[in-house]
Simulated scan of single mutants.
Amino acid sequence: MKLIGSLTSPYVRKVRIVLAEKKLDYELILDDPWGATAQVTAHNPLGKVPCLILDENEAIFDSRVIVEYLDTLSPVGRLIPPPGRERVEVKRWEALADGVMDACSTAFIETHRRAEALRDPAWVERQTSKIHAALDYMNSLLGEQAYCCGVNLCLADIATGVALSYLDLRSPELDWRPHHANLARLTEKLNARASFIATRPPAA
């Protein structure tokens, strides 16, 4: 398998961590989806990373779809429960984490990639408010549990850990830890795992 992606994309990192936790071999192909010569557009009509290329050259895209597929490839460390209430809970956490990443990415693009005269502070504030609301909800939902959905690591933890690390990378001014002690505790634990260490993005 080949994974097309960038080192700073949190969606790519989520997939890379799942690959590491599942002990699956793959080749990472670095690509800039914003560049004029982006490779991903030849495989994903949306031009987004990550994009997983299978041995038969079939492409799978969107991180949620990719991680669901990867979890079926090996019984090692199942990260997504079978259909039912537990699975819904894991996917709810993933939706929250992806929402945080979406809002953070949108605010970063507005602030750093649009011409200053065209920037919309109200739009950035709207994205920031989404982040704060999601973090409050996730912190309360986690409570004193060891992991997002109980005592074992699952996709919910990976998605959440990646989202929180992405905030550190792109929006350090949010300083989310003091008001979200439960999430801070979880992040510290996750950042010590080999899969998180190996996929740590370069400094902004």
Rank of each mutant, 00 (worst) to 15 (best):
E56L: 01
T111I: 07
C154Y: 02
F108V: 13
I131F: 05
L141W: 14
A36T: 14
S63C: 06
H112G: 05
R170P: 08
S63V: 03
A159T: 04
R170N: 11
T37V: 01
A103Q: 07
A36I: 07
K130R: 15
G161S: 12
N152W: 08
E94K: 01
P75S: 13
L52F: 06
E56W: 00
A59D: 05
A159P: 10
R78K: 10
A117C: 09
A122G: 04
R126K: 13
N44E: 12
C149W: 02
I66Y: 03
I66H: 02
R126I: 05
V100C: 05
V162R: 05
M101Q: 13
F61Y: 15
P83A: 01
G99D: 06
G143K: 04
D136S: 13
V90M: 01
V76N: 12
T128A: 12
Q145I: 09
I158M: 08
D102K: 10
P50E: 04
R78C: 04
T37E: 13
R64N: 02
C148F: 06
A156L: 03
S63W: 06
V40N: 10
L118Q: 14
K48M: 14
E110Y: 03
R170W: 10
I80Y: 02
A133Y: 03
R64H: 01
R170V: 12
V162G: 09
I109M: 07
G150P: 06
E56Y: 01
V88F: 00
L96Y: 15
I53E: 11
V65H: 00
L142H: 12
D102V: 04
Y137N: 06
A95W: 02
R113D: 01
R170K: 13
E144M: 09
D157T: 10
C104Y: 08
E144A: 13
L169G: 12
S63I: 04
E110L: 02
D98P: 07
L79Y: 11
F108W: 15
L142R: 12
A42S: 12
V124L: 10
L153H: 10
F61W: 14
E125Y: 08
E68H: 02
L79I: 03
T128D: 12
